Computed example of a mutant assay.
Amino acid sequence: MLVLGIESSCDETGVAMVQLQGDAVPTLLAHALHSQIEMHQAFGGVVPELASRDHIRRVLPLTRQVLNESGRTLQEVDVVAYTRGPGLAGALLVGAGVACALGAALGKPVLGVHHLEGHLLSPFLSQDPPEFPFVALLVSGGHTQLMRVDGVGRYELLGETIDDAAGEAFDKSAKLMGLAYPGGPLLSKLAESGDPKAYALPRPLLHSGNLDFSFAGLKTAVLVQSQRMLAAGGVTSFQDLPLQQQADLAASTQAAIVEVLLKKSVTALKQTGLKRLVVAGGVGANRQLREQLNAECAKRGVRVHYPELHLCTDNGAMIAMAAAMRLQSGLQQAVTDYAFDVKPRWPLHSL
């Protein structure tokens, strides 16, 4: 069975082809991705209307590219999958509309997929796929969650963010430092030459006794600290401060975020008694997070699994994979009713 997946939830257009054969882990045949980062940089963040229009321009050329690279034709596709939510409503409608139109034209069924389930199952695309059950740390954009995963569609929410997510803390802190959009990766790069202990920033909810997250207070602390640094330096722009001071604040910010993610993940492993951790989503590409998780889990005899670095961001491969695994498990059937809707807000644990 061939599954064509389309992702268009925010500012990346992704298309991929996955092959499903029996009970084996589905195989990725080809995928193509276009990022809108350059387009949105001038505005300092994603502009939803521009994002939707760009998805319209990109999705069909990317589909042709995937077909060419996979050596398959549209007529050979068995199921067309798409991101149904969560995400930007207009952006989601582009992918859903194209997928259902393709399905109707080909007479093939379609399947709407949960964006976060795509991230959650994306490590199954790696060279070292996990096995169920496991604890999952989902750190994708506006989402930070810890889940117990016993199988496809069998998700128990252990904890989640009550305000800003880890990805938002990276990006918003970076913006306060005058870094370009998207700021998270730039903050991490700047942090490489900084001292993570230079500034005492808070670790919100670290000792809360539960597995929930909160990063809004950290963002405020970064703002206050940066204002102090500007006043002490007699400058008005963060970029006018000595580079070492900039790097120190970036490193201290990253250290606070990573420590919270690390310790909450370890607590989740202790509470569940599981010995396998899956980390998925854009923040899962952070080098410091990976290094510290790997070291801590190695001491505890816990296996850690990540998606490949190029599949940490939003992509069509994770959508095609999630659809294939849902079909494989018998949990869901693709449909030939081509009327569609999207779910901009859609809790993963409601599946």
Rank of each mutant, 00 (worst) to 15 (best):
E7W: 02
S8E: 00
T13N: 09
T13R: 01
V15Y: 04
M17W: 02
Q19F: 06
Q21V: 12
Q21K: 08
V25R: 01
H34M: 10
S35E: 09
V47D: 09
H55S: 10
L62I: 10
R64S: 13
N68S: 14
G71K: 12
E76P: 06
P86D: 00
P86F: 01
A96N: 08
A96F: 06
L111E: 13
G112T: 04
V113A: 03
H115R: 07
L116D: 00
P129T: 08
F132I: 05
S140G: 14
G142Y: 04
H143P: 12
R154W: 01
L158M: 15
D171M: 08
Y181F: 15
Y181C: 08
P185L: 02
L186K: 14
L187N: 06
L190E: 09
L190V: 10
K197S: 11
A198C: 13
P204S: 14
F215M: 13
G217Y: 08
V222F: 01
L223V: 03
Q225E: 15
Q227L: 10
Q227Y: 02
A231E: 09
G234Y: 04
Q239D: 13
D240T: 08
A255Q: 09
L262D: 00
L262H: 01
V266F: 02
T267A: 15
K270T: 07
R276W: 01
A280G: 12
N286A: 14
N286H: 11
R287E: 10
R290I: 11
A298H: 15
R300T: 06
V302I: 13
Y306G: 00
T313G: 11
G316W: 04
M321C: 03
M321Q: 13
A322I: 02
Q328D: 00
A334R: 03
V335A: 09
T336I: 10
T336G: 09
A339M: 04
F340H: 11
